[in-house]
């Protein structure tokens, strides 16, 4: 995103809208700190700028990656999904992605409201790779990561995004170890992450998962997401 100085009236109305604080007044006009800007588009879409001074510039590699992971209005071409991750549990009644005896885990680096660089993402993905985790192929982030080492394309390490999600399925038996691995990496990061757990609503899986969370010292939230099972065809009824 850029600000066309010839159109900016210096009213300062835009400054507080930026989720990462990248807009400031430099001299008489508003300016964007390009290192901090994550190309999320909030300034372009939501500010009633009197001079219509915000301009989407054509982004090239590697900067374009900022918009891919920060602007929720983009539909990913290969997955046809908006947002930053995948359909995950939202369509599990149809896809059967998460099965009994398995859990899904999501590590959303940068959320909430801090943002992350891909250096942060790589710290976590490297730890996961060492633990033998295989990341979800449909997640756009996975395509940027060497699954064997957790390394990320050198070109994008310093790019910043509002958040990026590492997603994977793990056997329930391995949950304890995976959680310890994830939490041990937390202190090495320069950002925050929001962690989530998905499981099929089946008593044995649920009770074992809750038992492991208690052992590791994690209190799951009271609020969460429920897939109510109205999707068709049901995975159990013949969907691949």
């Amino acid at each position: 995103m850029i600000i066309d100085e010839s159109k900016c009236v210096g009213c300062e109305a835009c400054i507080d809208y930026c989720p990462v604080g990248a807009i400031s007044i430099q001299g008489e006009w508003a300016a964007i700190d390009r290192d901090a800007c994550v190309e999320c588009g909030v300034c372009y879409r939501e500010i009633d700028c009197p001079g219509e001074a915000f301009v989407w510039e054509e982004l090239s590699w590697p900067r374009v990656i900022r918009r891919v992971f920060s602007d929720p209005t983009l539909i990913k071409k290969d997955t046809k999904v908006t947002g930053r991750g995948t359909e995950e549990m939202k369509t599990n009644d149809v896809t059967g992605r998460f099965k009994a005896g398995q859990v899904g885990l999501g590590i959303e680096l940068g959320r909430p409201s801090v943002g992350a660089s891909f250096r942060d993402v790589e710290k976590m993905s490297s730890v996961l790779a060492k633990a033998g985790v295989k990341l979800e192929e449909k997640n756009p982030l996975t395509k940027l990561i060497n699954q064997n080492t957790g390394e990320i394309d050198r070109d994008i390490l310093d790019e910043r995004v509002l958040s990026a999600i590492l997603e994977f399925v793990a056997p329930l038996d391995g949950l304890r170890g995976i959680l310890k691995t994830i939490l041990s990496a937390a202190d090495e990061l320069e950002t925050v992450f929001s962690l989530d757990l998905i499981y099929l609503n089946e008593e044995a899986t649920k009770s074992k998962a809750m038992e492991i969370l208690a052992e590791v010292g994690i209190s799951p939230s009271l609020a969460g997401k429920t897939n109510v099972g109205l999707g068709r065809p049901l995975a159990e009824e013949g969907a691949p």
Partner: peptide, 26 residues
């Protein structure tokens, strides 16, 4: 709500909280 509507939840998701450099949070 599901029970009263005659539905059985299929899949559940919990937040397990915020971790890392929490001093950077608002």
């Amino acid at each position: 709500c599901c029970r009263n509507a005659g539905l059985r939840p299929h899949t559940l998701e919990h937040s397990l909280g915020i971790w890392g450099k929490k001093e950077k949070l608002p």
